[in-house]
């Protein structure tokens, strides 16, 4: 009883989670489950669809952290573009529609061990470091206006460099996937 009263009195506490925290944890569990299914399912197309769930859940997490602009960019680029690209990649490499038993390689136990060790280390470290740190979500931190102002006032040069990078990646992808480039090479040889 006494414990409950003190927990209610303090503004921050594990025993009195706010609504935002409860929603964050629930959506986070969904994201983790979808991510686990993405890396473990035997059906390749299902993996891409579970990736949509994980990335969409992350967009909700960004919204809960009041980073609105990032959330919608996440929906546009990841859920919209990247997953479609991945699906195209799966279909162009003739991924089987049904379950494929050889989706996982032989070093699966080793991978499990490495991931488990990394997770234990990281979670222990992070919980120990930020045990008594709270985020103040009173004001919106990532509105479109604030992001746009900082992006085009202080981050213009990296922004332009990134556009050059995107152009280079575009040209590279086109050059790599042109079909008649191979034929011409062989003719020259």
């Amino acid at each position: 009883m006494n414990l409950a009263v003190t927990a209610l009195d303090s503004t921050h506490g594990f025993l009195s989670p706010s609504g935002v925290e409860i929603v964050f944890v629930l959506v986070g569990l969904g994201v983790l489950g979808a991510a686990l299914l993405t890396v473990t399912t035997k059906q390749l197309v299902h993996a891409a669809l579970w990736l949509v769930v994980a990335l969409g859940g992350l967009a909700v997490e960004y919204l809960l952290l009041t980073a609105e602009f990032i959330a919608w960019v996440q929906v546009l680029i990841y859920v919209g573009a990247v997953v479609v690209l991945v699906l195209f990649g799966l279909m162009l490499t003739r991924a089987p529609i049904g379950a494929s038993p050889d989706a996982d390689s032989g070093n699966r136990p080793l991978a499990f061990g490495v991931a488990l060790a990394a997770a234990a280390t990281l979670v222990t470290l992070v919980v120990d470091a930020f045990r008594s740190t709270w985020i103040d979500l009173g004001t919106v931190a990532g509105s479109t206006k604030a992001n746009g102002v900082t992006l085009f006032r202080y981050w213009v040069l990296p922004f332009e460099a990134l556009s050059v990078l995107l152009l280079a990646a575009l040209v590279g992808a086109i050059v790599l996937s042109r079909r008649n480039a191979n034929a011409r090479d062989e003719k020259e040889r």
Partner: peptide, 29 residues
């Protein structure tokens, strides 16, 4: 919000991705 929640979620998500990179055989996966 407690900072531990997003930090732990990010750490676990990273480790799930790590497992996927090491265990998957298909390049797209």
């Amino acid at each position: 919000m407690h900072l531990v929640f997003p930090a732990v979620l990010a750490a676990l998500l990273f480790c799930v991705g790590l497992y996927g990179v090491l265990a998957r055989r298909n390049a797209v996966l």
